[in-house]
């Protein structure tokens, strides 16, 4: 800590207007503080010495800690004391150097390879620019081919309707049929007896995977059954 920290004075003074003012004045002594107040146009009432501020105390504490650390370091390892180091430290020092050198070399090697690879990739991109553009066309063709194949290979509308007409019993009529873009098929059938149709659909090789999803009574007194599935 500093030897003479008392340089702050808490002063009560009167202003020319008659109002009281309290100020903290930094000065060497009380007389100097009084002079500073008078110079500022104030009439001193009381001047009271106070200790260092919190900031000053904290700075002093840090300063002392740093000084203490430096003294200890000088005691442990004075300048040029490598030769006096303990044998274990003497042994560890070259190992640490080798480890650091190895690690550094590894890092430099890795990042060099990264740069070389990036450069080579750019080179390939420049050299094969036309082929890469052509590759994108190949990808577009492949997507269209997949989409077209799924549409072409799925049972056509004519086949679906023809097959349904062939297997439907006379008492059953097709109310509506829908196929969505995923290939799922909904069939709505009007029948007086659902049990007539169920075994036919279950045994059919194309509609075997379809499931009954709803059954409602129509105004005509028939039963409308909805089947859903993906025909094979």
């Amino acid at each position: 800590m500093r030897s003479d920290p008392v340089t702050r004075f808490r002063c009560a003074a009167l202003r020319s207007s008659g109002a009281t003012d309290i100020r903290i004045v930094h000065a060497l002594n009380a007389d100097a503080a009084r002079e500073r107040l008078i110079a500022a146009g104030l009439e001193p009432l009381t001047i009271e010495a106070v200790g260092p501020s919190l900031t000053q105390r904290l700075a002093g504490r840090l300063h002392d800690t740093w000084r203490h650390f430096r003294v200890r370091q000088d005691q442990i390892a004075p300048p040029g004391a490598t030769a006096d180091a303990t044998p274990i430290l003497k042994l560890l020092l070259p190992i640490a150097r080798w480890l650091m050198a190895g690690s550094l070399a590894l890092m430099l090697g890795t990042w060099s390879l990264v740069l070389i690879t990036m450069g080579w990739t750019d080179h390939v991109r420049r050299e094969q620019a036309a082929a890469i553009v052509s590759y994108r066309d190949h990808v577009t063709d492949a997507r269209i081919r997949t989409l077209a194949q799924s549409a072409m290979l799925a049972p056509s509308l004519t086949e679906t309707l023809g097959h349904l007409a062939a297997i439907l019993p006379a008492e059953t009529s097709l109310s509506a049929a829908t196929r969505d873009r995923t290939g799922a098929l909904w069939i709505e059938l009007d029948t007086s007896d659902p049990d007539l149709f169920r075994p036919i659909l279950v045994d059919d090789p194309i509609f075997r995977s379809m499931k009954e999803v709803s059954q409602v009574q129509t105004n005509e007194g028939t039963i409308r059954i909805t089947w859903k599935g993906v025909p094979r």
């Binding site: 390892a77 020092l93 890795t110």
Partner: peptide, 24 residues
């Protein structure tokens, strides 16, 4: 001092190893 040198080398080793790892 040797102790401080070893500490510095260890720190450099760790930093280099981390950078090498990122490099991989």
């Amino acid at each position: 001092s040797p102790l401080r040198m070893i500490c510095l080398l260890a720190a450099a080793t760790v930093i280099s190893a981390c950078l090498a790892w990122l490099g991989f």
